[in-house]
Amino acid sequence: MRNIFVARAFKEDANAQAWAFRESGVVELNYGFTSAAMIYATAFCQFYDALATTAKDVDFADDDTEVLLMILEEIENSAFTPILVAENSRNQWRESGRIYAAHPALLDLPQSRNEGDYHSFVSATEEFAIAHEICHHLLGHTGVTHRRRSQVNALVQERLDRSGAQEICSNLNPDQLQEIEADVGAFLLIAGELSGQATRGRIYRSLAGSMLALVTLGHISENWISREGPGETHPGFIDRFDVMSRIVREFTIPLTRGSIGDHPLGLLLQFQGFISIVLQFWMSRAKSEVKDPHFLNIFSWMMDQAVELEKELNSRHNTETSS
Rank of each mutant, 00 (worst) to 15 (best):
M211V: 09
A186D: 01
F251S: 06
V184F: 00
A208K: 08
P174N: 06
P235Y: 00
G185A: 03
A186E: 01
T199N: 10
A198P: 14
T233W: 02
L177N: 08
D242M: 10
L194M: 11
S206F: 10
E193C: 10
G229R: 13
T199V: 14
L172Q: 04
S206V: 06
I203L: 14
S206M: 01
E181L: 08
E181W: 05
L212P: 07
F271E: 07
A208G: 04
I260M: 04
G185M: 04
L212K: 04
A182W: 00
E228F: 14
G229D: 13
D262P: 08
F251T: 10
G261V: 04
T216M: 12
T199K: 15
I238H: 09
V184T: 04
L268A: 11
I260T: 11
G192R: 08
G258C: 06
Q197N: 14
H234S: 02
E232C: 08
F241A: 00
L189F: 10
Q176D: 07
V215W: 11
D239K: 02
I238S: 00
V215L: 05
P264V: 00
A182K: 00
D239H: 08
I238M: 02
D175I: 02
G192L: 13
G261K: 06
L207T: 13
E181Q: 05
L265T: 09
N223H: 14
I253Y: 08
L177R: 09
G236V: 07
A182H: 03
D175Q: 02
Q178R: 06
E181Y: 12
D175C: 01
R205V: 14
S226N: 07
E193S: 08
R249T: 15
P230H: 12
P264L: 10
V184Q: 01
L177M: 01
T256N: 06
M244H: 09
L267P: 09
A191I: 07
G266Q: 12
R227V: 15
T199R: 15
F271Y: 12
I190K: 08
L214A: 05
R257I: 09
S245W: 05
L177V: 04
P174K: 04
Q197E: 15
N171S: 13
A191P: 10
V248N: 00
L268Q: 06
V215R: 03
R257A: 00
E179N: 02
G185K: 05
L212G: 11
P235I: 03
Q270P: 11
A191N: 04
